[in-house]
Design a protein around this nucleic acid. Structure first.
Length: 392
DNA sequence: GATCCACGGGAATACACGGATG
DNA sequence: CATCCGTGTATTCCCGTGGATC
């Protein structure tokens, strides 16, 4: 962000008397362009990518780290920077096209497996990153996309390093599957596996990211606070308390910070008070699922979740809840029920046994497993017809 | 060049059956 | 055994795309 932009945002925030200057920068699903305190890890990754500087293809590498340790943030930031330096835009263009084509161009492609659940979507994601023209979202076969990708890489002597993030989460594209899809396409493709663990039988380099230590997480929070909130909105003691509570998990800490700012704004407070903070921390479940897991769901599923949050789901059988949600949506009760079981299967919500009343199989109630304040704030309203891109 | 239409992917929905429980 | 929950899957629907047809 440019300095004048920052200043303008501050000024407009003062005009509006809001404590949040920049919701985007406060969001736990938005990554900083410059990761805080991760120099050594970045160096290790640069070592692994070293061959790319000579136009060669680096070997596959795995990046692992516990939840909230910032593996995604690191890879996203580094890939952006590498494309900036080594990609087409980083080279001289125009009259030197012919010269530039003589040497291979290496692209760093980041694929979020949470948002890529089919072969079609995977090829589309990779191809989009390598092309400037629009890639069809439907109406064309998977094989056609694969052929286009193959052609794209072969014809222009391109290399691509594809990161598959969250490859080891439930319902996401596995690393093995991604390799199976990429291998027949081209020799000029390498991969980076980003997740909690390495893929099975991993024989390649691994860069392990550890959880943030206390003071590091304080630094991360302080950075967000200083940019996203008006000065004096939250005191240092609260930031430290937040960091301690989150125990090294940046997602939990940022989700709670966002929630606290939201609560304070909601109650027209001019600063984040302890009760806002406590309320927000209570909104982040223990072993919380990353809010982006919920935000990467299809729009209809997000709407079901959003309605679910707004009604009181505790101690009610799934059937009841599904019926009520269905009345507030265009979906049938059967479909909502199907969705709820599916979301429970993915771990976004949890089924808890309900005491029996009457005959038949025991029903379950539902517990939410993600930070709801952030989710409600970041999920599009149900009547919103705009087709803005959730991937952006 | 305009229009039509078959195709493919993906989401929604229907449905059936297995299993738990009183 | 009656009942209802939970789950796997078949079917239907929707719609963008791009080649065929006029």
């Amino acid at each position: 962000m440019e300095l004048h932009e920052r200043i303008d945002r501050r000024r407009s925030a003062r005009d509006g008397r809001g404590i949040v200057v920049d919701y985007e920068y406060l969001s736990p699903v938005v990554h900083r362009t410059e990761p805080i305190g991760r120099g050594p890890v970045l160096e290790q990754l640069l070592d692994a990518f070293e061959p790319a500087f000579d136009g060669d293809l680096p070997a596959p590498v795995a990046v692992t780290g516990p939840p909230g340790s910032g593996t995604s943030a690191i890879v996203v930031a580094l890939f952006d920077a590498m494309n900036d330096r080594l990609g087409e835009t980083g080279r001289s263009i125009g009259t030197t096209t012919r010269a530039a084509r003589a040497e291979p161009i290496t692209w760093f492609v980041y694929v979020d497996a949470r948002r890529v659940r089919s072969e079609f979507a995977f090829y589309r994601a990779v191809l989009s990153a390598l092309s400037t023209e629009a890639i069809p979202e439907s109406g064309v076969g998977t094989a056609a996309l694969r052929d286009r990708l193959q052609d794209r890489l072969a014809r222009h002597d391109r290399r691509a390093i594809v990161a598959i993030d969250h490859h080891d989460e439930p319902e996401t594209l596995s690393y093995r599957r991604a390799r199976e899809l990429l291998d027949p396409v081209s020799e000029s493709l390498s991969t980076v596996a980003v997740g909690r663990d390495t893929p099975d039988e991993w024989g390649e380099t691994t860069v392990a990211v550890s959880a943030y230590r206390g003071h590091e997480l304080v630094d991360v929070l302080t950075d967000r606070v200083s940019t996203a909130l008006s000065p004096g909105t939250i005191d240092h003691e609260s930031v430290r308390r937040l960091s301690e509570w989150a125990d090294g998990n940046a997602h939990d800490a940022l989700a709670a910070l966002y929630g606290a700012a939201d609560r304070a704004t909601e109650s027209d407070a001019d600063r984040i008070q302890p009760r806002h903070l406590e309320r927000a921390m209570g909104d982040v479940p223990e072993n919380s699922v990353h809010v982006d897991r919920a935000l990467s769901l299809s729009r209809t599923r997000q709407q079901v979740l959003s309605t679910l949050v707004s009604i009181e789901p505790a101690d009610r059988p799934i059937r009841d809840i599904a019926d009520e949600i269905a009345t507030q949506s265009s979906l049938t009760a059967g479909t909502v029920k199907r969705f709820l079981y599916e979301l429970a299967d993915r771990g976004v919500i949890e089924r808890v046994p309900l005491p029996i009343n009457g005959t038949g199989r025991r029903p379950s109630a539902i517990e939410l497993r993600f930070p709801t304040i952030v989710f409600q704030s970041l999920t599009p309203a149900s009547d919103e017809e705009s087709d803005f891109d959730l991937d952006g």
